[in-house]
Write a protein that binds this DNA or RNA. Structure first.
Length: 194
DNA sequence: ACCGCGATGCCCT
DNA sequence: GGGCATCGCGGTA
């Protein structure tokens, strides 16, 4: 992480969610906590597409205390708690009023950072919890940069943990690059490259 | 390799 | 009260 890094700003996140998800791969998520910088390279994300998307928290336009952040400005963190023990980090996308987001599922961890092969592991390794819900993705606390690293080939699969056989469950809204840090290994034959 | 399940607590109906 | 955008372990193979 050096002076060449370019911060991904609000205009980056204000675009179509699937495009944001794809573009986030190979970018670097940075967390600064207690004066130390923890980071990891994004290798697995998922798009959640709002009211029409039956797997999204904002399905049907649900506007509740939990989903409120997704209805607001793009480029903020949406952090929620699940299964009694895990925090999950999302980036809010699209303009205000369109409750869409990208879930961070895996990172290639930087030096001194623990395993990040799963959404709960990412937040544990980077010290992310409800205190960061709703914060803008700007330094110093939590932000994403382009460090100029080469972009790898992107693969798409159905989203993890989304049950059912309907259209939304089958949609290829999980975006990954081939990495040992993924939450689940790629099965080459079933994979569709783009 | 796959499958089942317990942990644990918040959210929403 | 049911379900959950999870994880890690233990069993079977």
């Amino acid at each position: 992480m050096n002076g060449e890094d370019k911060l991904l700003d609000e205009s980056f996140f204000a675009r179509e969610t699937t495009v944001v998800a794809r573009d986030l791969l190979d970018k670097v998520l940075v967390r600064e906590i207690d004066g130390q910088k923890l980071w990891g390279r994004l290798v697995e994300v998922e798009a959640y597409l709002g009211p029409q998307d039956i797997a999204a928290h904002s399905k049907g336009g649900r506007r509740t205390p939990r989903t409120e952040v997704m209805f607001g400005e793009p480029g903020r963190a949406y952090v929620y708690f699940t299964y009694g023990m895990h925090w999950c980090l999302n980036f809010v996308t699209r303009e205000a009023g369109m409750p869409q987001a990208v879930l961070v599922r895996a990172l290639e961890p930087g030096p001194g950072v623990g395993r990040c092969g799963g959404p709960g592991l990412v937040t544990r390794a980077l010290g992310i919890d409800r205190a960061l819900n709703g914060v803008p993705l700007v330094p110093p606390d939590l932000y994403v940069v382009d460090d100029g690293a080469p972009k790898r080939r992107v693969f798409v699969t159905p989203r993890i943990g989304v049950q059912g056989t309907g259209r939304w469950e089958k949609r290829l809204l999980r975006y990954v690059v081939d990495s040992p840090a993924l939450s689940r290994p790629i099965r080459r034959q079933r994979l569709r490259a783009r």
